[in-house]
Protein backbone atom coordinates (compact mmCIF):
# COMPACT_ATOMS: atom_id res chain seq x y z
CA UNK A 1 0.00 0.00 0.00
CA UNK A 2 1.32 3.42 -0.91
CA UNK A 3 1.26 6.25 1.63
CA UNK A 4 1.17 8.82 -1.16
CA UNK A 5 -1.65 10.01 -3.34
CA UNK A 6 -1.68 10.01 -7.10
CA UNK A 7 0.09 13.09 -8.50
CA UNK A 8 -2.46 13.31 -11.31
CA UNK A 9 -5.47 13.67 -9.03
CA UNK A 10 -5.82 17.36 -9.74
CA UNK A 11 -6.33 16.87 -13.45
CA UNK A 12 -7.92 13.39 -13.58
CA UNK A 13 -11.50 13.42 -14.84
CA UNK A 14 -12.14 10.02 -13.29
CA UNK A 15 -10.93 11.14 -9.85
CA UNK A 16 -13.46 13.96 -9.91
CA UNK A 17 -16.14 11.39 -10.70
CA UNK A 18 -15.04 9.21 -7.78
CA UNK A 19 -14.99 12.21 -5.45
CA UNK A 20 -18.52 13.29 -6.28
CA UNK A 21 -20.14 9.87 -6.12
CA UNK A 22 -19.95 8.17 -2.72
CA UNK A 23 -20.65 4.76 -4.19
CA UNK A 24 -17.44 4.97 -6.16
CA UNK A 25 -15.16 5.68 -3.20
CA UNK A 26 -13.86 2.13 -3.45
CA UNK A 27 -12.02 3.10 -6.59
CA UNK A 28 -10.51 6.15 -4.91
CA UNK A 29 -9.37 4.17 -1.88
CA UNK A 30 -7.90 1.35 -3.92
CA UNK A 31 -6.27 3.42 -6.62
CA UNK A 32 -6.07 7.24 -6.22
CA UNK A 33 -5.03 7.30 -2.56
CA UNK A 34 -3.85 3.71 -2.49
CA UNK A 35 -1.80 1.82 -4.99
CA UNK A 36 -2.02 4.39 -7.73
CA UNK A 37 1.04 3.03 -9.52
CA UNK A 38 -1.12 0.20 -10.88
CA UNK A 39 -3.75 2.60 -12.22
CA UNK A 40 -3.95 2.42 -15.98
CA UNK A 41 -4.70 6.15 -16.20
CA UNK A 42 -1.63 6.94 -14.09
CA UNK A 43 0.56 4.68 -16.20
CA UNK A 44 -0.60 6.29 -19.43
CA UNK A 45 -0.29 9.86 -18.16
CA UNK A 46 3.15 9.20 -16.70
CA UNK A 47 4.42 7.80 -19.97
CA UNK A 48 3.09 10.77 -21.94
CA UNK A 49 0.31 8.86 -23.66
CA UNK A 50 -3.18 10.17 -24.19
CA UNK A 51 -5.65 9.18 -21.45
CA UNK A 52 -9.20 8.48 -22.71
CA UNK A 53 -11.70 10.28 -20.51
CA UNK A 54 -13.70 7.07 -20.01
CA UNK A 55 -10.76 4.85 -19.06
CA UNK A 56 -11.18 3.26 -15.62
CA UNK A 57 -8.18 2.66 -13.32
CA UNK A 58 -8.30 -1.08 -14.01
CA UNK A 59 -8.02 -0.53 -17.76
CA UNK A 60 -11.70 -1.04 -18.57
CA UNK A 61 -13.37 1.48 -20.85
CA UNK A 62 -16.80 2.78 -19.90
CA UNK A 63 -19.08 2.07 -22.80
CA UNK A 64 -22.71 2.66 -23.54
CA UNK A 65 -24.79 -0.46 -23.20
CA UNK A 66 -25.73 -1.71 -26.64
CA UNK A 67 -29.45 -1.56 -27.37
CA UNK A 68 -31.05 -4.92 -26.73
CA UNK A 69 -28.10 -6.20 -24.75
CA UNK A 70 -28.98 -8.77 -22.05
CA UNK A 71 -29.42 -7.46 -18.50
Amino acid sequence: MSDEECPHMGSCEMYQLFSFAGTLATWKINYCTGEYARCERYKRASSGRDVPVNLMPNGALLKKKAAGAPE
Binding site: M14, L17, F20, A21
Partner: peptide, 13 residues
Amino acid sequence: RQPAVPPPLLAPR
Protein backbone atom coordinates in the same frame (compact mmCIF):
# COMPACT_ATOMS: atom_id res chain seq x y z
CA ARG B 1 -22.16 2.18 0.19
CA GLN B 2 -25.84 2.99 0.11
CA PRO B 3 -27.61 5.21 -0.54
CA ALA B 4 -26.51 5.11 -4.12
CA VAL B 5 -25.87 8.53 -5.55
CA PRO B 6 -25.84 8.72 -9.32
CA PRO B 7 -22.46 9.93 -10.52
CA PRO B 8 -22.31 13.23 -12.37
CA LEU B 9 -21.24 13.43 -15.97
CA LEU B 10 -17.61 12.85 -16.69
CA ALA B 11 -15.83 16.19 -16.47
CA PRO B 12 -15.21 17.28 -20.04
CA ARG B 13 -11.68 17.99 -21.13
